[in-house]
Every structure is written in structure tokens, then in C-alpha cells.
Simulated assay, not measured.
Amino acid sequence: METRKANMIFGKAGGNASRNAYTCKVSVPKTWVDRMGLTHEQREIKLAFDGDRITIDRPEHSPVKHTPLASNQKIRRFALLWMQMYKNHASTPDFYFEDVSFVGEGLADLGFEMDCGESFKAAFPNCNLGDCEAWKRIVNQIDSVPLLGDAIFSQWRYWNHWSNAPMEEADFEWFVLAFSRLAELAA
């Protein structure tokens, strides 16, 4: 699950509302809205409040839209590009690895899901996704493009958002191995 911090927007209510009335809004990332399949024409959502948490869902009659998996050619091209970027990380500005508009949106546009490594854990329950030594032993056992793409997306999101430490050489090596295998599978 991807999370972000946001601020509630409070605005003066207009029309026939009382003087002290306010409207409350929150801005959500456009990429999330796109992934849900919401558009100007199809913008209906369902809000739920359980006393502690507000959730936004598509109505039951309108299933969540996931981006279909891209062609192997597109996936391979993306994987080869990022394999080289991670391999040559010393000469690549850090923002290319950190900004969501490069790796994150690219993976989402290819149809991969950032599932916090859940699909990987289900397939390889005894392997820690972020452990580079374990990754070296199992990466060539992965024979599913969607599984590997989701694992890459989840690991990238970990380093982009949740980790409070800079990437080390082993972390760059993890991505080189992952993108290399993804390019191989998409050939």
C-alpha cells in the first residue's frame, strides 16, 4: 500500500451556509486517481468512515481499474534503461532514482503493482525481498514478469519512501540484478 502525508484543506462554505460553516477537502495524487480509473466523466466514488479512518473506493458496480500489463517490448526497454541507470548510479543524479515520475510512474504505467512485496512473499515465503545476498540466490528462479515487476516496484517504493537511509552499493546491485532479469524475461 502506498501512503503519503497530506493536509486537510478548510474553506469557507458559500451559498446559504451559516457564517461559521466550512468545507473540508483533501488533494490526492493524480497517479492514484488515474490508477483507480477515475475521469472527468466517471468520477463517482464511495467514501466510508469507521470512526478513525476515511477510505475512498470505487462503487461496487464499478470495479477498480488496473493498468493492463504492457507489451514485453516496452517492459524490456524500460528494464534495460533502468538496469544501466542503476549500474552507473555514481554518474547519475540521485533524483532520477527518487522522483516518482521516473521509476514509480514508469512501473505503474507498465501495469505493475506496488503491493509492498506481498506477491513476492507469497511466492518466496522464506526470502526477504530486500536482502541482496538472498536476492542473488533466487532472482533467476523468478519466471513471472508480473511477479518480478511488482517486486521491483515494492522494493523501489521502500527505498523511495520508507527507508530512512541512503542506498548502499548492495542496494544498487539488487536493482541491477532485478532489472537485468526482468529484461531477460521480457525478451
Rank of each mutant, 00 (worst) to 15 (best):
M1S: 10
E2L: 10
K5R: 15
K5H: 07
A6C: 08
A6H: 11
N7P: 02
I9R: 15
F10V: 14
K12L: 09
A13M: 02
G15I: 02
S18Q: 09
S18A: 09
S18I: 14
T23R: 13
T23K: 13
K25Y: 15
K25C: 12
K25D: 15
V26P: 01
P29E: 14
K30P: 06
W32Y: 15
M36G: 08
M36N: 06
G37R: 04
G37L: 06
L38Y: 10
L38I: 08
L38M: 09
T39K: 06
Q42A: 12
R43N: 09
R43Y: 01
E44Y: 10
I45R: 00
L47Y: 04
F49T: 12
F49S: 11
G51F: 11
R53V: 12
I54Y: 14
I56H: 08
D57A: 15
D57W: 12
P59H: 02
P59G: 07
H61A: 06
H66M: 14
L69E: 10
L69P: 14
S71R: 13
S71V: 08
I75K: 02
R76Y: 01
F78K: 00
F78Y: 01
A79T: 03
A79N: 07
L81E: 00
W82H: 05
M85S: 01
N88T: 10
A90S: 08
S91C: 12
Y96K: 05
Y96I: 14
F97A: 15
E98D: 13
E98S: 11
S101G: 13
F102H: 15
G104T: 03
G106P: 00
A108H: 07
D109G: 04
G111N: 12
E113V: 13
D115R: 04
D115W: 02
C116D: 14
E118I: 10
E118Y: 14
S119M: 10
F120I: 07
F120P: 03
A122L: 13
F124R: 10
P125L: 05
C127H: 15
C127T: 11
C127N: 14
L129K: 00
L129N: 03
D131I: 11
I138N: 03
V139S: 06
Q141T: 06
Q141F: 05
V145H: 07
P146R: 03
L147W: 01
L148S: 01
L148W: 00
G149L: 03
G149I: 02
D150S: 03
D150C: 05
A151M: 00
A151D: 02
A151T: 02
F153G: 01
W156E: 00
Y158R: 05
Y158K: 05
W159D: 02
W159L: 00
S163W: 05
N164D: 07
N164C: 00
N164E: 03
A165E: 14
E168P: 02
E169Y: 05
D171G: 07
D171M: 09
E173M: 09
L177R: 09
L177E: 07
A178H: 01
A178T: 13
A178K: 04
S180C: 07
S180M: 11
S180L: 15
R181A: 08
A183R: 03
L185V: 11
L185M: 05
A186G: 03
A187D: 12
A187M: 04
